[in-house]
Design a binder for these strands. Structure first.
Length: 453
DNA sequence: GCCCTATTGCA
DNA sequence: GCAATAGGG
């Protein structure tokens, strides 16, 4: 069917290595780039506050890049299945292209839309773009999915290497008459009353060009120290790519290949290997979500349903959220998060362990807070990693592995630079719980899980 | 991807 | 008295 090609952008806000966009350009018809803000489809999780901030700026950046190339980004809001179908009808489009999603609710939308459009004679095609290995391609010897990371990643690495990234298009010709679009400002994605985004503006530049520069700077300047320093929150040794990958401003294929190239030309084999395995954890989280769609709600290990969470104490939860626990490393992490929409990975593990094991608050409350405050939270990695810390997840830390925030600080922030930066006053506070007593109580509560096994 | 405790070896 | 290490949660 002839007629313009619609590229439905979702978590892939880039023009380089975007197979759906590439396929649209190859059709030779004008291209309509569409983004749908969908808070209505069944089971699709509404974005958190920090995510909305990032999305606003990333969409603005994508629109600017499309305008430089002869078109623009069309914005619509509403349930995606209806909105995309309407856009197809209004534009008399001949094809709709998108990059695949792996959550259950998202797949349901995409599958229904695909069927409906094909019935109307519209070409529909989808592509792999946000994971290096799609969930159904990685199987154990007996055909199961993996539940332990190391064999999972080994199996991935034994598959054919991820394809090379596609080059960035020079032109994206739009139709003579562009379809109607919403005004991005009308979506009110940015906070106004109050405007709490100052720290985010100071910290981040969303958008594809900045994402590419960040990868380059990381590989050129920081890769060498990554393996040794990645666990030190004050070292600045990590890639800071997580939000860029979450929004698809850069593709994992690009990260993969540029990292492999950097390692080939340098002496950073151990660091490159380690960094790629972090991409592997990201893959593992998406695969786990694909096979266990209730990841954000249900314990992956059902015996954890027996865990005796005490009645929620809102003041404890709030002290944690605001960084007022009196535990320096915990407060530093929670304030970094509140200010910047980000937290160093080592500190994420520490604050999560503290919430779950010392405060005995259900991991879901922590997951919700991170969902609302992190710029990089996605529907797979956020719950996956919370379950990992809780002990209820895939290849999780055993429950009895309880982080001691003071020892973690001594080990990974020995000169106290990170704590001094984010929580210089934390030492003056009373600690809201006794680390030793609460650790013991958590170990005793864990007995219920062991009995339920 | 950990922490705690007890024990051992050495001073 | 301390550091290193094993064993177990």
């Amino acid at each position: 069917m002839t007629g313009p090609s619609i590229v439905w952008f979702r978590d892939d806000l880039r023009i380089a290595d975007n197979p759906a966009l590439r396929a649209a350009l190859d059709r030779g018809e004008p291209v309509i780039s569409l983004y749908v803000l969908d808070a209505e489809s069944d089971g699709v999780r509404p974005l958190g506050g920090a995510a909305r901030w990032w999305l606003h700026h990333s969409l603005a950046s994508l629109d600017a890049r499309l305008r430089e190339r002869g078109s623009l980004l069309i914005l619509r809001r509403g349930p995606a299945e209806r909105v995309v179908a309407e856009t197809v009808r209004d534009a008399a489009a001949g094809a709709v292209l998108w990059n695949r999603r792996y959550g259950e609710a998202e797949r349901a939308v995409d599958t229904a839309l695909k069927a409906g459009l094909r019935e109307d004679g519209v070409e529909v095609e989808s592509f792999a773009a946000s994971v290096l290995f799609e969930p159904w391609t990685v199987r154990t010897g007996v055909g199961d999915h993996y539940s332990v990371f190391t064999p999972f990643w080994k199996a991935c690495l034994a598959l054919p290497a991820p394809r090379a990234p596609l080059p960035e298009p020079r032109e994206v010709p739009g139709p003579a008459r562009a379809p109607a679009t919403d005004d991005l400002d009308e979506w009110s994605l940015l906070p106004t009353d109050p405007d709490w985004a100052e720290g985010l503006r100071e910290t981040w530049e969303p958008g594809e060009p900045a994402a590419r520069r960040r990868l380059r700077a990381f590989l050129d300047d920081d890769l060498g120290s990554y393996d040794a320093a990645r666990d030190e929150p004050a070292a600045g040794a990590t890639s800071l790519l997580s939000p860029r990958l979450r929004w698809g401003e850069i593709s994992p294929y690009t990260v993969w290949h540029e990292t492999v190239d950097a390692a080939r030309s340098g002496r950073h084999a151990a660091s490159a290997h380690r960094f790629l395995s972090e991409l592997g954890w990201r893959e593992f989280a998406w695969h786990t979500l694909f096979h266990f769609p209730a990841l954000a709600d249900k314990n992956l290990k059902p015996e954890f349903d027996a865990f005796p969470w005490p009645r929620l104490r809102p003041t404890m939860l709030e002290a944690w959220q605001r960084g007022r626990t009196g535990i320096p490393l915990v407060d530093a992490g929670m304030r970094e998060l509140w200010r910047t929409g980000y937290m160093h990975n080592r500190v994420r593990m520490v604050v999560a362990s503290f919430l779950i094991k010392n405060l005995m608050i259900d991991w879901r409350r922590g997951e919700e807070w991170f969902w609302d405050t992190l710029v990089d939270a996605d529907t797979a990695n956020n719950p996956f990693n919370w379950q990992w810390v809780a002990g209820s997840g895939a290849d999780a830390a055993p429950y009895f592995r309880i982080f001691n925030p003071e020892l973690q600080a001594a080990k990974f922030d020995p000169d106290g630079r990170y704590v001094a930066r984010w929580a210089p006053d934390a030492d003056e506070r009373d600690q809201i719980v006794d680390l030793r007593e609460t650790r013991q109580a958590a170990l005793e509560a864990y007995e219920a899980v062991k009995r339920a096994r």
